Amino acid sequence: MVTREAEPTLRALLSRRELALRLADDESAFRPGALDRPTRWVHSSDLDDPTPFLAEDLVLLTTGTQFPTDGDYPFDAYVRRLVDRGVAALGFGTEVVRDGIPPDLAAACRAAGLPLFEVPYSTPFIAVARANAEAVAAQAYARRTWALSAQRALALAALRPDGLGATIAELAKQLDTWVGMYDAAGELVREHPAGALSPTAADTLRAEVG
């Protein structure tokens, strides 16, 4: 089956050595599971408020031209807008208009639990976006391949002498989970693996089916 590890995530993006991306803080500084959150797209913007043009689970890249080099800037408000919009992470392109990530931006991301990483000058933003797009395409291909393979396996199982039982067993194998079939009265008539549900889970499921 297609596992969670196959999903395009920030962790997978950061692991691409050719991109040379670097987290601004230790992983413990961010929300639990933040690096394993699926990333649907990578977009770049230097707008002060890009949120009207963003979607959830998106990685935003910026060079920071919207941040003044002298004077104060409300980094906390900027980061809060991104978090409220559902942005998964922020990538800062260094050595374009600034040497390194602005400390106040790093502090704001740390306070909000938003993953912040450095995109070195040698790595074009388009390369980061393309790497994530390739991962999304690879996942889609893997899902289609698995679906066709699972459909073929279920069709063959249905042709066996005990077609119903074999189909349920094959479905449990393909989904890597317990599978059961209930009759019109809400009683469990087939399951695989047999007896895998705890009494509490079985009672809860029977009530929901009923």
Rank of each mutant, 00 (worst) to 15 (best):
P32H: 02
R40G: 15
S28K: 12
S198V: 00
E170H: 01
A6S: 11
D72N: 10
L13F: 03
A202K: 12
A133E: 12
V209T: 14
T123G: 05
T39W: 03
G210H: 10
L23K: 09
P50S: 03
L105V: 11
L19A: 09
W178F: 11
V128E: 00
R80F: 05
L54E: 04
L58M: 13
T63K: 01
S45F: 01
S45N: 11
E170Q: 15
A133P: 01
D76N: 14
E7R: 15
I101D: 10
G71F: 05
G71H: 03
A207Y: 03
R81T: 07
P68W: 01
R143A: 12
D76K: 09
H43T: 04
Y73H: 13
V59Y: 00
A185G: 12
G91D: 10
P52L: 09
A172C: 07
M181H: 09
A111G: 07
Q139L: 15
T123I: 06
E27N: 05
L90E: 04
A20N: 14
D25P: 02
V179H: 08
D46F: 08
I168A: 06
A108M: 04
P199T: 09
A34E: 14
G210W: 00
A129V: 05
L205F: 01
E18C: 01
R40E: 11
T123W: 00
P193A: 05
E134K: 02
A107D: 14
